[in-house]
């Protein structure tokens, strides 16, 4: 596979390390009264679609960026690649 890095262009998948479902960005608030449930769902009940999947990849042998890659798990077609930091900021995770 090739991941089209938003800053570096197309790069072989062997430069990357996979983590999984991009919703791992959305770490729950531990102060919430249902924190235990939220953390359980956050960590264990991940998206696993047969189709478009937003997922986290780390460019370990590249620029060390975490990326959010939108990839179809049936065809492996990649339609979008973003810097995870931007995604996280857009999701309001600025502290």
């Amino acid at each position: 596979m090739i991941i089209d890095h938003p800053l570096l262009g197309p790069r072989d998948v062997s430069e990357f390390v996979y983590l999984g479902d991009a919703s791992l960005i959305n770490r729950p608030d531990s102060q919430n009264e249902n924190a235990a449930k939220h953390f359980y769902e956050y960590l264990y009940l991940r998206e696993n679609p047969a189709g478009e999947h937003r997922e986290l990849w780390y460019h370990e042998h590249g620029d060390r960026s975490w990326l959010v890659v939108t990839r179809d798990t049936l065809t492996h077609k990649i339609t979008r690649v973003e810097l995870a930091r931007d995604t996280a900021l857009a999701a309001g995770r600025n502290k």
Binding site: Y58, R64, S65, W66, T87, R93
Partner: peptide
Amino acid sequence: AVSVFRHLEFCRQCLWPGM
């Protein structure tokens, strides 16, 4: 050493990008 560094980058970029 490698996995901890990756984890720290994850925390920094994905969990607390405002730090």
